[in-house]
Structures are given as C-alpha cells and as structure tokens.
Simulated scan of single mutants.
Amino acid sequence: MLGEVLDAFGTLHLRSFVDCTLGAAGHSAAIIEAHRELELYVGMDVDPAVHDEARARIERLLAEDSRGSSLEAYTHVRNFKYIKSVLGGVDENLLAVGVDGILMDLGMSSMQVDDSGRGFSVLSDGPLDMRMNPQASLTAEDILNSWPESEVGKILRDYGEESNWHFLQKQIVKARASVGLHSTSDLVNLVRRASGRSGGREGWIKTATRVFQALRIAVNDELQTLEDALYACFDCLSSGGRLVVISFHSLEDRIVKQTFLDMIEKPEGDDDKGEISSGPSLLATESEAETWSKNRVQGRQGIVLTKRPITPTKEEEKLNHRCRSAKLRVLQKI
C-alpha cells in the first residue's frame, strides 16, 4: 500500500518522520524521496537482520541524495513500543517538539516469512520459533509443549479466532504427551489430520494459518505491545502530525480503531454510525483535502481521518496477494 501511505503524508510539510517497522525500507525510501523538505528520519525494527538490510538500503539512498548532510538519518534495533526512548536518545528536545509523521506497518517482512528458519511460514519446514526478536526467550515450541492446556486453547480461540480450537487443543496435548511438536511440519501435519476432509487443502491451510497467527501473536505479545505503542506514538506527534497504521488481521484493526478513538478523546454521545464531520480542517486548504478523508471523526485531541479504513485496490491485490487483508488508518493530532 505504498501509494496510500504516500497519500496519507502527502499534504504535510514533513520535517521529521519515524518508520516504526523498517522491514525492507520500501516505505522509508519512498517517503525520503517524496519529501525533499525532510530534515530528520528515524527507522526502527525489532529484528536485527531486517534492520541491517534496511539500514544498508537507506545508506545507499542517502549516498546518492543531493541533500547531503542536511537530512539526519538514524536507525535502531528496537521494538516500536520504545519510540519515546529512541527519540529521546536522538535529541532530548525532540519529544517536546514532536515529530510530523509516524508509520507503523504491522505486516511481517517478506524476509521473515521466506526464511524457513524463522518458523513463520505454513508452507516451509522449520523450527517452531516465530520470534520477531531472535534475542527473546519464548518460542512457539515452548508454548505448544509446555504451556497449560487451557492457555493453549485460549491462544487458539482468542488470537487465532479458530472455531475448532477445542479439538485442536486436545490434539496438541495428545501430541506433546508422546513425541512432542518440534517443527512447523509437525504442527501443520497435526492441523491437517485434525481438519480431516473438510474444506480440502484450502481448508486445512486456512486453519493452519490461523493457528500460526495465534502462536506468533502470543510469542511476541503483539496485541498488548501494539496498544502500548499506539499511545506512545501519539504522545510523540507534533501538533498537526499524523500517525499512519497498516494492520493485517481483525484483531489488530480493532485495536487500532478503538485506540485511535480513545486517543483523540471523542466526545461522549458520538457513536460510530453515520457520517461525522471533522469540523475545521487542519489542512492548508480544503482543495488539498484527501478524498479518502472526507468522513472523519473529530475529537478533543485529534481527528481520525479514516472513519473507514483504506484497503488495497484490486490491481494491488493481483500484484501482491499478501496485501489483500491490509487496512490503513490515519490519525492527525491537534
């Protein structure tokens, strides 16, 4: 959703920008190239390998950039929930002033998915790892083989939204009582057997995808980390600054939607039905107002510019099937 991200920041005079999820640095590179006025760039990623690849790309881009040293660029191997300490380390006055743009792309990097040794892919054999941060201690194998049965079931039900969670829970406990579950293939084969003939190959793959999602969320404490990070990012925004978040499943999107409404302090009595105008525009002129932000939610502390999330176009889905579930939301601080 590169075009949509550029649109979300397009009308801003972007002097400072933070990419909380570097990935392959595609978004960062595009923002740096599109905003010639940019003076400060900060990139973050919890995965050291991903960070190093992204850092190299940013360095190559800056080496070819005519702005020379006028753009200060920093990258850090840190979880985005630590954005305040990262920015404070860059410039102790930065938190008081705030930054103009912050991006969070919650999707996994292709480098992570395609590396079978990370254990994220349903279709590749590898260890049951699933750690975003390789230095963290908890793995998916730990959860499957040693966590209480009720906790395993709760993860499948709440984080995977899996309707067959109870039967899968029983099968996991049965498997770990014998040889255990030690590879992604072990887990996929268990799901395939548990799914039987229902839905064919597509059926068990969808179930396995939900199971993998549930474990990944639990291993990385993703939902609580996301909520904490959203509040931290909002605190780091300048007046008129924007926070753009791309989520990839309903649990994330619900947290982003509700947290945005909480952060802007939407007045009591305003529900989420019907059209809600933003009131006075924070944009330079009404003619610059983005077409996707016509219906907004006004609050005391900010404006949710995407009352309904932006989703990929059919053309983009054809080019990149991994983006088909993406939802982009934008918040602007007053």
Results as ranks from 00 to 15, higher is better:
D129Q: 10
M130E: 08
R131H: 09
R131S: 05
M132E: 06
P134M: 09
Q135T: 14
Q135W: 09
A136S: 14
A136P: 01
S137Y: 03
L138H: 08
L138I: 12
T139C: 12
T139Q: 02
D142Q: 13
D142I: 09
I143Y: 00
I143R: 07
I143G: 06
L144Y: 11
S146T: 12
W147V: 00
S150A: 12
E151I: 03
K154G: 08
K154C: 11
K154M: 11
R157G: 00
R157N: 04
Y159G: 03
E161D: 15
E162N: 09
E162V: 12
S163T: 14
S163Y: 12
N164A: 08
W165P: 05
W165G: 00
F167L: 02
F167P: 04
Q169R: 15
K170H: 13
K170V: 06
Q171D: 12
I172N: 02
V173M: 13
K174H: 05
K174C: 06
K174A: 12
R176E: 06
S178R: 13
V179W: 04
G180W: 02
G180F: 04
L181W: 11
S183Q: 05
S183Y: 07
S183L: 02
D186C: 07
D186R: 09
V188P: 02
V188T: 10
N189K: 11
N189I: 00
N189E: 14
L190V: 11
L190Q: 13
R192K: 15
R193G: 11
A194V: 03
A194H: 04
A194W: 01
S198L: 14
S198Q: 15
G200S: 13
R201Q: 10
R201T: 08
W204I: 00
K206R: 15
K206A: 01
T207L: 15
A208E: 01
R210F: 11
R210N: 13
F212L: 09
F212C: 07
A218E: 14
V219L: 05
N220E: 06
D221V: 07
E222S: 02
L223D: 01
L223V: 06
L226F: 02
L226W: 03
E227H: 09
E227I: 05
D228M: 09
D228S: 14
L230Y: 01
L230R: 01
L230S: 04
L230C: 04
L230E: 06
Y231A: 13
Y231L: 00
C233S: 15
D235I: 04
D235M: 10
L237F: 07
S238G: 09
G241E: 09
G241H: 07
G241S: 11
L243C: 05
V245F: 01
